[in-house]
Design a protein around this nucleic acid. Structure first.
Lengths: 211, 211
DNA sequence: AGCTTCCTCGATCGAGCGTTCGATATAACG
DNA sequence: CGTTATATCGAACGCTCGATCGAGGAAGCT
């Protein structure tokens, strides 16, 4: 009994994960409101009504995609940050983690950034909290960076945080993972752009040069 | 005759502009696919069928919003750039123009950045071209900046361009025009963040500090 | 007056949507 | 064997949507 229940439990979870992956692709391609549950049923090879055994509504489906994906990003980030002392290195890890996750899971990340407004009520509230959690981690790192590098007050921390997320999240609008620029290099470009700026230290002969 | 025709022509254009403004607000609030022509008819005080005298389809309505708005941004930018020699000043003008337009016309700009994928076929093609036109202007300015300031190759020009647009376009996701940060200051923050970076020149005592 | 053009409207169509419901197959448990 | 839980399905309901159509009103011209 215990074995079979466990078995069906994992099988259930596996099928759910598969449905979420396919749904993320469809939502990413056609947009949440323009995508139909029937699209999902066709691509998943399941009947329309059979899908509702795995989620209660289309909106819950959208929420599960966003919640699980962002949670993965956040836990992966916290794991990588363990034991790191340098503030700048923390920031570098954050950018690489974010951009890396983006390129590996483009569909889900696109749904997160593009279909956030499609959530309402309780789902919206819970997702807002999770986003704040992530944003706070980033902002605290920026605070450390500013303290330990005597970085000037170029911009308020919240503006800088939003600018950084803008740079990173906008990737979905132009970047294709199989392009000339590998992901690691793209992440490094964005990291250096944000920390050192486009003009950088080249104008004065003091010669700081990242990495 | 000529007078009355001109009169009705401007009245026609005025009503169309008013419809586009209201539609932009609705699309911005509910999203393109979730907003209905009936919503527009209610808020505009016109009958449902009467609206179709001013546009052929819902998608053409979306296109007109995006096309007219982005065209305004582009022509305003080119006008402001006339006679400016300094590359950095050109970049500064671009950022201020873009951010300024964003805050003054939040709904339409949000529709441009958020509902670009909702266009298809011919409309999509024409909008893609216009976006490229705008992006090219920006990229050329960045090329000038890099040449005339001996800025290092922190990132490829297209990556830098996309990063800059990411910073600027992401505004719609967090900024509210009536907040603590005035628009001009926000634009200046983003300009300095992009050119000089978050850490900036503070680490080395050479002391460059943007104007 | 008659004619034409611009503009607006109510009524309606056909299609697609999310969701529900009852039936059914399978398999493990008593 | 009977019972129960798990999982899947076809058919249908109720609703909203974008778009169309023909009828009209208002205003200017001949």
């Amino acid at each position: 009994m215990a074995e079979s229940e466990l078995q069906t439990a994992t099988e259930h979870e596996e099928k759910l994960e598969r449905l979420l992956t396919i749904a993320a692709e469809i939502f990413s391609e056609k947009g949440y409101h323009n995508a139909s549950i029937r699209d999902l049923s066709k691509r998943a090879g399941t009947s329309l009504s059979g899908l509702y055994y795995y989620f209660a509504s289309k909106e819950e489906l959208l929420f599960m995609i966003q919640d699980r994906s962002l949670r993965k990003v956040l836990t992966a980030l916290r794991s990588k940050l363990e034991g790191v002392a340098s503030a700048e290195e923390k920031l570098r890890i954050l950018v690489h983690n974010h951009v890396g996750f983006f390129s590996e899971n483009m569909a889900a990340m696109r749904v997160i950034t593009h279909e956030y407004d499609s959530l309402q009520g309780e789902y919206r509230t819970r997702m807002t909290e999770l986003r704040h959690e992530y944003s706070d981690v980033c902002q605290e790192i920026l605070r450390e960076v500013r303290r330990f590098t005597s970085a000037g007050d170029v911009a308020p921390l919240n503006v800088a945080t939003s600018a950084l997320f803008g740079m990173m999240n906008w990737i979905y609008a132009w970047y294709t993972p199989g392009s000339n620029v590998p992901v690691e290099r793209l992440a490094e470009h964005l990291y250096r752009l944000f920390t050192g700026g486009f003009i950088g230290p080249g104008r004065s002969p003091s010669g700081r040069r990242a990495g």
